[in-house]
Amino acid sequence: MADVAMAETSTTSPQSPISKLTNGTTDLAIHDAEMLDTEPNGVSLNGLSSSKPPRPSVDVQKPIPYTFDLGHLLCLDTNPLPPHSTESDLTSIARDAAQALINQLLTTLTPTSTPDGVFLPLPAPSTPLPREKPVPAEKEPTKWERFAAKKGIKDKRRDGKMVYDEGSGEWVPKWGYKGKNKEGEGEWLVEVDEKRESETGEAGDKRRDGREERKERVKRNERRQRANERNSRKSG
C-alpha cells in the first residue's frame, strides 16, 4: 500500500500550482490592516496599465447559499457535488467554502485589535451537540433548610463574629479563642450549687458542666451534618 501511496503524492507535492501562489502570502491579521492603505494604489495601477493580471476574486457564487455556524467555525454547503468528482474538484469546492467562511467571519464579526493579535468575537454555537455528562443536579436541601422553608424562617442577617461583653465592657468573639460560649470555663473560683449538693450529694463543677454541654452540642451538629450528607447521597 505504501509504495502506491508514495507514487500518488507527487500530485500534492510542493510543486503544485497552489503552493506556488502562496509564496508571498502574509497572515490574515497583517493582511487585513494593510489592505486599507494599499487599496487606492492598487486601483490606480490597475486603471493605468492593463498589463497587470486582474484582481483575484474574493466572492463565491453558488446556486444554494452556504449556511454558517460561526460559533463552531462551521460552514455547510448543500450544493450537490458533481458525480465522480476528482481530487481537483474537491479542492476547488473546499477552496470556495473556505473563502466563503473567511468572508463571513471577517464581514459579520467586528475584530478587536490587541497587542497579542487581532481577535474575532465568536457568537454562541447554534448546532446542538450532546453534553458529555448530564446537567448537574440541584443540591439536596438539608433537614434544617426544609424545615425553615416549611415554617417560613428566613436567614438571619449576619451581624459579625464579635459580641459586646457587658461584664468586661469589651468586644469578644462569639466562639473560638476567648469566645463568649466558653464563658465561665476558665474561672479560678466558682460557687458551690447548694441545692444540687443537697439533692445528689455531689457539689458538681459549673466549669466542667458548661464545657461538656458545649462539646455535646458540637457532636450533635456533626451528627446532623452527616445525616444530611447521607440522605443527599441516597436520593441524589
Partner: peptide, 20 residues
C-alpha cells in the same frame, strides 16, 4: 480532507483564500 489555508492580497478588503 484537511487543507491548510493560505491567504493572498486581493486588492480588496477581504483576502483571497487558497487551500493546500
Amino acid at each position: 480532507r484537511i487543507y491548510l489555508i493560505r491567504t493572498k492580497r486581493s486588492g480588496q478588503k477581504l483576502p483571497r483564500v487558497e487551500v493546500e
